[in-house]
Amino acid sequence: MGWTMMGSEVLHEGPFMTLQRDDIVRPDGTRGVYEHLVARDGVRIVAVDGSSRRVLLVEDDFYLRPERVLHLPGGGTDGQEPREAARRELEEETGYVAEALDRLGVIDPLPSTTAARTHLYLATGLRPGTVCRDDTEIGMTVTWWDLADAIEAVRAGRITEAGSVAGLLLAAQGPLAGLLG
């Protein structure tokens, strides 16, 4: 890697993230400071119906965004293995349980800011479960979208959340490619 941490200081510690300042030696040998966020990994789930032509999307309010955000279900791993966190998040947010969860990939949405990764899954064989949202998800809504319309929403800038963009495009070019005529 070439980077060496000489020391570290916690600037702020909260329930979901920590702001940390590290004293470092860069690959070229110079000393410096690197500030970054320490956060849990996340998951996003492309949940498809029996025909795989429709995907589940959620829309929610986020404090830092002035408009509602349309995205795939998902959230933090909360210390669980990513696959188990994906199962939990899908049911909590949408009320659906997946018979199968297949890994689509992983992304590093902000690699210069945090080491947290987003794990992407394809969920099939959906059956009813129980919605159990936390206080930040009270206004969340769940809708079924035609897969082609969801991909167009990515292209048009309507779906912009990094894990949702990557998950939808990976699914559309991989396991669901034959459904986009």
Rank of each mutant, 00 (worst) to 15 (best):
P175S: 03
V25E: 03
G14F: 02
D22E: 15
R54P: 11
Y96L: 07
V131G: 04
A148V: 04
V25T: 05
V38M: 09
R133A: 09
G2C: 05
T124I: 01
L64W: 11
L104K: 00
T118W: 06
Q80H: 15
A150I: 03
R65C: 15
W145I: 04
G74K: 08
M6K: 15
T18W: 05
E84C: 02
L104Y: 00
V106R: 14
G29W: 00
A171D: 10
D23M: 14
M1I: 01
R117N: 06
T160W: 06
A156K: 11
H71P: 12
P175R: 00
L110R: 14
A171W: 01
A171E: 09
I45L: 12
E13L: 08
V55R: 01
A85C: 11
A98K: 00
V46M: 05
I24M: 09
T113C: 07
P27L: 03
L126T: 07
D102C: 05
T30C: 14
P111I: 04
G79D: 02
R68I: 09
L126K: 01
E99N: 04
M17D: 15
L101M: 08
T124K: 01
I107L: 07
I107A: 03
V154D: 03
L104N: 00
G125N: 05
G76Y: 05
